[in-house]
Amino acid sequence: MEFLQTSLDGILFGSAYALLALGFSLIFGIMKRINLAYGSSLLLGSAIAVWVNEHIGLGPLGLFLVTITAAALVNIYVERLCFCPHVGKTGVTASMIASFAIWMQLDEISSQLLPQRTHEFPGIEIGSVEIFNLYLRGDQILNLWIAIIAISALFLILRCTRFGLLLRASADNPETAKLLGANVSRIGIVTFAIAGFLGGTSAFLILSSDGHVTPLFGLWSTIKGLVAMMLGGVGSLVGAVLGGLLLGFLEAHTTNLFGAEYRDISTFGILFLVLILRPGGLMGVAHYRTDRLAHERI
């Protein structure tokens, strides 16, 4: 029973990791570049929302909307500055280093916005539910639903819309997509905006269940998102969702077994194991065998 309870807690929390990893994976899949400033963009988005909340007051819905909008806007700013100028050139390292620099800038702006280290991030108060002796926090169930809706929306957009078709085409073969009339500059903006919405949703879910935000959230979410993405398989969206859930699951169990101070060590240990046994991540191998283009670009 304890095992079930821990697994459930882990998977509920893992749904937020899945959103983080999806944002990373989307950017990597389409631009073939790692965005190191991703976590900091989410931090700044949340910091803006908290700042607005402290000055004029927002309800939970308002806080959510401001968080995801601000995160998307900051993400677009990062894209214009670090990624857009290098599209179509061999600027893989240039983009990554530029995003590292922007990471520092965004962290600094966030600290200026929220001068004391800890600020309240009001959550949604819902009582817990008990099913078959399993306790579920109400807000975490809500989080799971929000994550499911966001993930389904992303997959629907990619599968069923004209723009999704174009995004998949650009991820597959950017040069040819250009040939078929794709506006590469617009694809970059929309990709980063979608990643911002996903990441902003994730930030809201995580911060509202923590109840507070600190400037460390930027680095923390970059690492969690990257680890979840690598576990699942770099560039694979289904893999990102699985990786996120798996990370939540593993963290809950290692915390339960060894205590919170060993949580990250155990998680990284498992990541190393996965990377040794399946270097492309859990879902990444089949993907990479056929994806010659991605191979050349890494």
Binding site: R162, L165, L166, A169, N173, T176, L179, L180, H287, T290
Partner: peptide, 28 residues
């Protein structure tokens, strides 16, 4: 309309999606 050298199809997309991508500008 250009058919590029070495075909350059979208390898990870279905044949149908490849064709639909060709008509991308006319979809709407």
């Amino acid at each position: 309309s250009l058919v590029p050298e070495n075909r350059l199809v979208f390898p990870l997309m279905s044949v149908r999606d490849n064709l639909m991508a060709g008509a991308y500008l006319r979809h709407r």
